[in-house]
């Protein structure tokens, strides 16, 4: 049987705008992936612990509050501490262009802002999933 890609879609931080996260979750479902959705207001610790238990291949972080530099990087740092660098981490939301290089350096493999085509996210995950 073909292995299913498992994805955690999480909303770190304090903003309540989850429409984007839900649309991506639904689209990944339609692309044949198993998507775990955690809901709002997650800390990095909660996200990484959930990723451990759910044994996901991909973590998608959605954030529109502006705290992405701190919170996205907290997630990748905690993953590193658990030897889980083989989990593909991608981010989305309102992320300024100039922040993207630093995020990529910190292990956020893909950053998808407003206007991204859903197909591009699906393709990026399929191509880059490491597990």
């Amino acid at each position: 049987m073909k292995r299913k890609i498992r994805v955690l879609i999480a909303k770190p931080g304090l903003d309540g705008h989850d429409r984007g996260a839900k649309i991506v979750a639904r689209a990944l479902r339609d692309a044949g992936m198993e998507v775990v959705y955690t809901g709002l207001h997650q800390t990095a610790e909660m996200i990484v612990k959930t990723a451990v238990q759910e044994d996901v291949d991909v973590i998608g972080l959605s954030l529109l509050s502006g705290a992405h530099m701190t919170l996205f990087m907290d997630v990748t740092r905690l993953l590193k501490g658990k030897d889980m660098e083989d989990v593909l981490v991608v981010g989305g939301g309102v992320i300024p262009e100039e922040d993207i290089p630093a995020l990529k350096k910190a292990g956020i493999a893909g950053v998808f802002g407003p206007g991204t085509r859903i197909e591009d996210i699906v393709e990026f995950i399929r191509k880059n999933v490491k597990r």
Binding site: R29, A31, E34, V35, Y37, T38, E45, M46, K49, T50
Partner: peptide
């Protein structure tokens, strides 16, 4: 449920259980 069409699934039960996330 797993979708009979795509084979994918949206697993959302955890949302109600997040107080135990840590």
């Amino acid at each position: 449920p797993t979708s009979p069409f795509s084979g994918g699934a949206l697993l959302g039960d955890r949302i109600r259980m997040m107080e135990f996330a840590t």
